[in-house]
């Protein structure tokens, strides 16, 4: 079914005065987009669970490499503030001892403790941030991506308090002046909203992988469908020993670290 010119006129005309016109617009548009999804790509398939595995050993191969961080932050227009307090970061590195405080022993600390570990949002199975948000501005999609609706966020920062992984950043300032070059394919944010890694869901929609994974020459970041037994990420997790951050909290992170 196609919307004809006549239909549009009807929508804007008095004919729909009785029916709530807005609803009508939505209903009509919905029908068309359903058609669209049949024709083109599905919005997100139900049987997908995106996940990520980070091979720490591979990641360490090139000292001081921050290619993935740069790739992500430029793709997503993440502002760079010099003041640590106002930092916004989607992917960054922290010393091992802070990331896995329980997984260190007195003997390993010396060497491993200060090794950098790559951090992103864990896209938990049961994300605490989703539960606490009072306006449903952040939620877990059916494909496992924990996403944020920047249009709706009221900036209460409850999600930041709830996230046990420190994955979330807040726009304390207008981010735009702090973005060197803007990627037109991704919106910037406005001051007063919370943001974080989105597993490159805008790229996933186009059938691409996350920018960080793509940019890593060492292939230290492996991204894929955790539900699919033969996916690369599942294969990797089968073959190597991997840990999650603070699994005891029951959040079920979808980011695995291969140690």
């Amino acid at each position: 079914m196609k919307i004809t010119r006549k239909d549009f006129l009807r929508i804007s005309g008095l004919g729909l005065l009785a029916v709530a016109g807005r609803k009508a617009v939505r209903a009509v548009a919905e029908r068309t987009s359903e058609r669209a999804s049949e024709q083109t790509s599905a919005p997100f398939a139900k049987q997908v669970r995106w996940g990520m595995a980070i091979d720490l050993q591979k990641c360490r191969q090139k000292d001081g490499c921050d290619r993935c961080i740069k790739a992500c932050h430029s793709t997503h227009n993440v502002p760079q503030f010099s003041d640590r307090a106002h930092e916004v970061k989607w992917i960054w590195k922290e010393p091992f001892k802070n990331v896995f405080p329980a997984a260190q022993t007195g003997y390993t600390r010396e060497f491993f403790g200060n090794l950098p570990v790559l951090l992103v949002c864990n896209h938990c199975d049961d994300p605490p941030c989703q539960d606490v948000c009072p306006v449903k501005a952040t939620w877990k999609r059916e494909d496992g991506v924990v996403t944020i609706d920047f249009h709706r966020c009221i900036g209460c920062r409850y999600c930041m308090a709830a996230c046990p992984y420190g994955a979330r950043s807040f726009n304390w300032l207008d981010p735009r002046p702090a973005i060197a070059t803007v990627n037109l394919d991704f919106p910037t944010r406005t001051k007063g909203v919370v943001e974080k890694c989105n597993f490159c869901e805008e790229r996933l929609a186009k059938g691409l992988g996350p920018a960080c994974a793509e940019s890593c020459e060492e292939k230290a970041i492996v991204f894929g469908d955790l539900e699919k037994p033969d996916s690369e990420v599942r294969r990797l997790l089968r073959s190597r020993f991997a840990v999650q951050r603070q699994p005891e909290l029951g959040t079920g992170p979808a980011v695995y670290y291969i140690v």
């Binding site: 966020c153 009221i154 209460c156 920062r157 406005t190 007063g192 909203v193």
Partner: peptide, 11 residues
């Protein structure tokens, strides 16, 4: 405390 106080009605 809100970052976007004008959206408070969203609650």
């Amino acid at each position: 405390d809100l970052g976007q106080p004008t959206r408070i009605v969203n609650i």
